[in-house]
């Protein structure tokens, strides 16, 4: 499709995801959507709104309430010619499906020497910042990223939400598609085409020369805001949005960090044994001689996600990001 024919529309991230599902279902009859409350209700975040009405109950449907069953059935359907997209209603409600995801979704290709592959997408609304009660605000990406065989991606903008979900559905490998809940209502002009960043590509969201902020999903806007504030204080911060956790775009991330010589990773999940840990480790190994300071990390604390009134303590905010930047040994101490 040439750029001239691509429609542009102002959409929220939830609407962009909805359009991606819609357009993928139009383009390919084997694309199906199922899960809990995705039919008549249109999903608790309305990401599947209208799909059952338009495509019928065989293409977008509610299942019995069992996440292991949902993912397990998707495995079988993917083995037999379908491209299922399933929804885990909230991050923490994906855990009953963990066995299926880790033992089968992730391993089927390998176990069959590449003969059976699973073109399926597991959508997981994740993260905090929406005043949710317990079990509704987990950041579960590290569990999936730690599991060989799964692609793990997370958009930070409505445009990326559209193109990444189209790419995930088109992928012949299973993709865990992490949707930052607090960005569902963020809005921008979206290009509705399938050309765009593929899975595995990070992007520099903002150019800067003094230090690099590395973020993904819900913390990208935080990093951008921190860069705005830093600019007023005379410091130029670059912002990298990973978009894809697995595969990891070493090239873009390392080139960015080499260009500034300093970096801070900003992520919402608990920091211990996390995606942020992995980023620090691999960037340090590859860019050691370009670094003027150890890479900083601003993450959630190593505690269960706190309740609404206290969640601001857990979520990386601009102040903590700027503190971490200040700590990057700008002078001899």
């Amino acid at each position: 499709m040439s750029a001239g024919q691509i429609d542009h529309e102002k959409l929220t991230m939830a609407q962009a995801l909805n359009r991606a599902l819609h357009d993928a279902m139009v383009a390919d009859d084997s694309v199906l959507m199922f899960g809990e409350d995705v039919g008549a209700l249109g999903g608790v975040f309305r990401v599947t709104d209208g799909l059952t009405a338009q495509f019928g109950d065989t293409r977008c449907f509610d299942t019995p309430l069992a996440e292991s069953g949902i993912v397990g059935m998707a495995v079988g359907m993917a083995m037999n010619g379908m491209r299922p997209v399933v929804e885990m209603q909230f991050d923490a409600f994906g855990y009953p499906a963990f066995e299926q995801i880790v033992s089968h979704v992730a391993k089927m290709r390998n176990r069959t020497r590449g003969r059976v592959h699973l073109p399926m997408v597991i959508r997981v609304p994740f993260g905090g910042g929406i005043g949710g009660v317990e079990h509704h605000c987990d950041s579960s990406e590290a569990y999936y990223a730690h599991t060989p065989g799964l692609h793990v991606v997370t958009p930070a903008t409505p445009s990326d939400a559209y193109t990444l979900l189209r790419a995930a559905i088109a992928s012949d490998d299973p993709v865990v598609f992490m949707e930052p809940k607090k960005l569902y209502w963020s809005k921008e002009e979206v290009a509705l085409g399938t050309d765009g960043p593929g899975i595995g590509t990070a992007v520099v969201r903002r150019e800067g020369t003094d230090a690099t902020l590395i973020a993904y999903g819900p913390t990208v806007p935080v990093a951008l805001e921190a860069a705005d504030v830093a600019a007023q204080e005379g410091r130029s911060l670059q912002v990298v949005d990973l978009r894809s956790i697995v595969p990891f775009d070493d090239e873009t991330v390392c080139a960015a960090v080499r260009s500034t010589g300093r970096a801070v990773v900003v992520a919402e999940s608990a920091g211990f044994a996390s995606v942020a840990s992995e980023i620090v480790a691999r960037v340090t190994q590859r860019c050691f001689h370009s670094l003027a300071a150890p890479i900083g990390r601003v993450t959630g604390f190593d505690i269960p996600f706190p309740p609404p009134k206290l969640e601001h303590f857990q979520l990386p905010g601009v102040d903590r990001v700027l503190d971490a930047v200040d700590d990057l040994q700008w002078e001899d101490q």
Partner: peptide, 11 residues
């Protein structure tokens, strides 16, 4: 009901 899902879809 389970949120929006009626019993007939449950069992």
């Amino acid at each position: 009901y389970a949120i929006s899902v009626p019993l007939a879809r449950q069992s």
